[in-house]
């Protein structure tokens, strides 16, 4: 086995295959984001909630007078969790709990959500040293804190938004996770079951 030789073989084969008609039927480059569309943020929020709940996700809206830390404390108590693991976020600094280091033993993982997509009910999480990937994945319950300004219309708008954040792709983060509800499978006679590998409950707190 010689990877270099194979590389030459594959490239040669492709070039000989495609030499004759190089002139391209380029895609039209159509943009599916409508810039004229006036975005009604409260409609986006409602759509997100409807779609996230449709895939068995749970949504809590933080009331105007409610305190986020208090709300999270309350959720943790309700879930009767022994240990919690969470991202290093300002709003979680004064939680009643300390973040569990061993994620495999945590009952709940709490993260932020960098964006959300209204049209599909999807949370978008970007990885970084402060935002590990496993917090939203290993524990049986995932709670995500979402700021309502970060909800975008659809996946096309999301990529347009990402494009703005990542003018220079060297800075594209190592992992972008799209999360649409709890982990699911229909592999046994098409019966829907939750929590097969990832969290069985996905909870969003909208701020």
């Amino acid at each position: 086995m010689n990877s270099k030789e194979s590389k030459a073989f594959i490239l040669q084969n492709l070039r000989s295959a495609l030499r004759e008609d190089k002139e391209m039927s380029r895609s039209t480059g159509k943009v599916f984001v409508d810039p004229q569309l006036s975005i009604d943020q409260s409609k986006l929020q409602n759509d997100f909630i409807v779609n996230f709940e449709m895939v068995s996700g749970e949504v809590h809206l933080l009331g105007e007078k409610e305190n986020l830390t208090e709300k999270i404390n309350e959720l943790i108590r309700e879930l009767d969790a022994q240990s919690v693991s969470f991202w290093n976020m300002n709003s979680l600094k004064s939680l009643e709990f300390t973040s569990e280091i061993d994620l495999a033993n945590a009952d709940i993982g709490i993260t932020g959500a960098d964006f959300a997509i209204a049209d599909t009910g999807t949370l978008v999480l970007l990885s970084s040293p402060e935002q590990p990937r496993l917090t939203s994945l290993l524990p049986p319950v995932h709670i995500a804190i979402l700021e309502k300004e970060n909800i975008v219309l659809d996946i096309h708008a999301l990529f347009a938004r990402l494009g703005k954040s990542y003018e220079n792709y060297d800075k594209l983060c190592s992992c972008i996770s799209f999360i649409t509800g709890p982990s699911r499978t229909a592999d046994i006679e098409l019966n829907l079951t939750l929590g097969v590998h990832g969290p069985g409950r996905a909870i969003v707190v909208i701020v």
């Binding site: 049209d119 009910g121 992992c175 996770s177 799209f178 999360i179 649409t180 982990s183 990832g198």
Partner: peptide
């Protein structure tokens, strides 16, 4: 509408 997880 979307699969549960998409990882980039």
């Amino acid at each position: 509408k979307s699969s549960t997880y998409v990882s980039l």
